[in-house]
Write a protein that binds this DNA or RNA. Sequence first.
DNA 1: TTCGTGATAGAG
DNA 2: TCTATCACGAAG
Length: 183
Amino acid sequence: MEKDFFDRDPKIVARDLLGKKLVHEEHDGRVSGIIVETEAYYTKTDKASHTFYRPSALKFFLNNLPGTAYVYFTYGNHWMLNVLTKDGAVLFRALEPVEGIKKMKIRRKTSEIKKLSNGPGKLAQALGINGAHNGLHFAEKKIFVKETNLAPQIVEATRIGITRDSHKKLRFYIKGNEFVSKK
DNA sequence: TTCGTGATAGAG
DNA sequence: TCTATCACGAAG
């Protein structure tokens, strides 16, 4: 991953992340998957972004560098993994499991591969991501993104689970991939 | 479709 | 204190 990869417009980063590998390096081995679905959020101009209605989130975005993990807890159950970019962030929404599948199955309490990481909450659970990872920089290589030789076909769509600015096409996924959370 | 779950933030 | 809301997921 080239330096300054994350120091670009969130929409560009969201697209470029598709087909790359998201890795969580743990003491007992690595857990990873191909990124198949992402969403972009903008710090200042996006009403759907946490920065728009959560002062603490705005502070976090403004006080951390692109490439920093933004992990938050919601709906009483779920952790969400994002990475900061220039003027925004990208939410990791779905992965195609690659390494550590056995561990993912235990964490997710299912043996069905397709249900391991086909959604943002599921993905974080499968990878073992939680609040302890908030603020870690991807350059530290605990959580990070790795290049692949894939060149996926990308589909652009509206974001999921938001109300404000729901018409904006800031969701991206790999065409035809069976791990995408929704069509 | 409905409902659980808990942090955050603003109002009272 | 109280209440609304929420970048979700599982069950039915």
